[in-house]
């Protein structure tokens, strides 16, 4: 079964093409990370999935239903953590949550959900007075109501402290293990890396890559560089003949080996250790950060590397 399918999905705001001819299929049970810099079109895509906005062209199907003709049926089975929400009414966190439970005709226990997201002691305070991180936790609790078949989380870690991110990850993993499909967007690579089965990378409205993390690594060349510091000059050891080794060179007492297959690193180390005295080993994998920057051109509105965009 397919959880989400978009077909030629396009959304223009005036002259700006926010989402451009997007074809995306997400299978049921998957954890799909939707990655891209700010302004790449991730939120626009999510808003289209939920019928908050209407496509200029193309179609959206969620859980087998058309997003525009059957938004209510979709919302029955989906849990949403939206982006750019607000808790504006003078209601407590618990009242917001109870409202969500009532609206979904669910039988969840509000205390249990508040505990799950770490708001156990704050349920009776006004949600509008919460810190950003607490509001994010409450929004996450609302998304979890009625154990939805599909969780759509737009930048779920926004405003959360590391502890909160950890908790969120655990709950997401737990739900995914129980069969829930998870579709979440992020501009933080490590977050996507940590929980996703598959990743889609958006840039300037286009889907530039869809693959597993390993697949992405491979498509980036999969290069790993190994540096072996030896007691004497490590020349003529025959490393080049090993499988998965692209090239090697000697730099004073250091042997630098380029591997096309990361798995070849162990073989190289064993091979060299049998023939010379190795004093230190350093390994560099092509970082996904570099790949991500490569795919997205460093972002739409600034050229900073992703690392610095992290909050």
């Amino acid at each position: 079964m397919v959880a989400i399918r978009t077909d030629g999905l396009t959304k223009r705001f005036g002259d700006v093409v926010a989402v451009d001819d997007l074809d995306l299929t997400i299978e049921e049970g998957e954890v799909f990370g939707f990655l891209g810099p700010n302004g790449a079109g991730k939120s626009t895509t999510i808003n289209l999935l939920l019928d908050f906005i209407r496509p200029t062209a193309g179609s959206v199907e969620v859980l087998g239903r058309d997003a525009q003709t059957n938004p209510e049926e979709i919302r029955e089975r989906v849990g949403v953590l939206p982006e750019g929400y607000g808790f504006d009414d003078p209601l407590t966190g618990r009242e917001y949550l109870s409202w969500a439970i009532r609206t979904k005709r669910a039988d969840d226990d509000d205390d249990e959900l508040l505990d799950l997201v770490g708001l156990g002691d704050d349920g009776d305070r006004l949600a509008g007075d919460y810190s950003k991180g607490m509001q994010q936790r409450l929004a996450f609790a609302i998304a979890l109501v009625d154990d939805p078949d599909l969780l759509i989380l737009d930048e779920p870690s926004t405003g959360l402290d590391p502890n909160g991110i950890q908790q969120l990850r655990e709950v997401v993993r737990e739900r995914a293990d129980q069969g829930t499909t998870v579709f979440f967007s992020s501009h933080i690579l490590s977050e996507v890396e940590a929980v996703s089965d598959r990743v889609g990378v958006m840039n300037e409205g286009e889907l530039v890559a869809v693959d597993s993390i390993e697949g992405l690594r491979e498509s980036a060349g999969g290069h790993a560089t190994l540096r072996l510091d030896c007691a004497s000059t490590p020349a003529g050891l025959g490393v080049d003949a090993l499988d998965g080794v692209a090239a090697s060179r000697v730099d004073e007492r250091t042997l630098v080996v380029d591997c096309t297959d990361p798995a070849a690193k162990v073989d190289v180390v064993t091979h060299v250790a049998e023939r010379a005295t190795v004093e230190d080993i350093r390994s560099e994998t092509v970082s996904l950060e570099a790949l991500f920057n490569d795919l997205t051109g460093g972002g739409r509105d600034d050229a900073r590397p992703v690392e610095e965009v992290r909050q």
Partner: peptide
């Protein structure tokens, strides 16, 4: 308009409401 400005509408329509 208030719900649209503050983003409350995202909860209203994220739940099974038309």
């Amino acid at each position: 308009a208030g719900e649209r400005e503050s983003g409350g509408v995202k909860f209203l329509l994220g739940l099974p409401n038309s």
